[in-house]
Amino acid sequence: MSTLDLRELHDTEFPVPADMQNNVAITSLSKIYNWSRRSSLWPMLFGLACCAIEMIATAASRYDFSRFGMEVMRGSPRQSDLMIVSGTVTKKMVVPIVRLYNQMPEPKYVMAMGACASGGGPFKEGYNVVSGIDQYVPVDVYVPGCPPTPQALMYGLISLQKKFDGESLANLDDVPWYGVGPSDAVPIPVLGPDIIDPRQAELIRQQAMLAAQGLPFGRRELPAVAVPQPAVAPVEEKPAIAAASTETAEEIDPEKAARLAKREAALARKRAAKAAAEGNEG
C-alpha cells in the first residue's frame, strides 16, 4: 500500500543500539501523528437510543466537545473516524451498524456508550437486543452508565485520546492501515429466524445437527458451580464447539487470529522483499 516503510525511518547513519532501533526516530513522529489524530477526531452523527440524547447534549453548547476537535459530526461513515454506538443495539439495527462500520475508512474507532452498547443494558434479556456491540464489531472504549452523563462521555472521549497517545508508528499492530492495508470487513449478519452471525455458521450447523438427533442444543453445559471470580476467570471447561464461539474467549478468536496471521504473513513478505532488495544492492 504505502510506499513509505516506517522501518526505514530509523535506518540512520548513526549506529543505533539494537534494543532502541524501533524507537529513536519514530517516537517524535508518532507524537505528532497521534496529536494530529486525536485533535481532529470526527464522530459519526449517529444515534440509537436514549444515550444519543446525552451525546447530543455533549455536543451542544454546555459541554461542547468541539473543544477537543470533534465538532464535525459527519452523517456519512466515510468521513468519520469514530463511531459512538450510543444506545441499545437491536438485532434489526446491528445489520446496518456493521455495514456502517465496514464503510468507515481506517483508522476507525468504536466507542460503546452506555450500558446497552457495552453489554446489553437493562434490556439485555429482550429477544431483539444484542448483548453488546462488541459481539459484532471491535470496541475501543466502553463508557458505562445509563445514560452516561455528558461529563462521563467526555471522560470516555479523553480516554480514547489517551489510547491514541499510546499507539506507536513503530508497532504495526497499532497502525495496521500503514502496514498491510485495511483490515477485513466484518461479515454482515443475516436476519433469519433469529440473527445469524456468518462467523458462527459452522457452530450453528453443529447445533442444528444436535437438534436433528433430538439432543439438547442451544444451551451451554456449565460446570455446576461458578468459579469464585467468574468476572475475570473465563469458563475453563469449554465444550469443544465453544472454541468456535468468538466472543467469550478473546484469545482464541479465530477471526482475529486469522487477521493477525495474515498481517504476520504480509510483514514477512515485506521483510523478505526488503532483504532481497538489499541483497541485490550488495
Partner: peptide, 16 residues
C-alpha cells in the same frame, strides 16, 4: 452469554 452456546442472545429453531 456464558450459558448460551453461541455466546450471543440468539436461539434458533431446531429445524434451521
Amino acid at each position: 452469554e456464558e450459558l448460551n452456546v453461541f455466546g450471543k442472545n440468539v436461539r434458533y429453531p431446531a429445524d434451521l
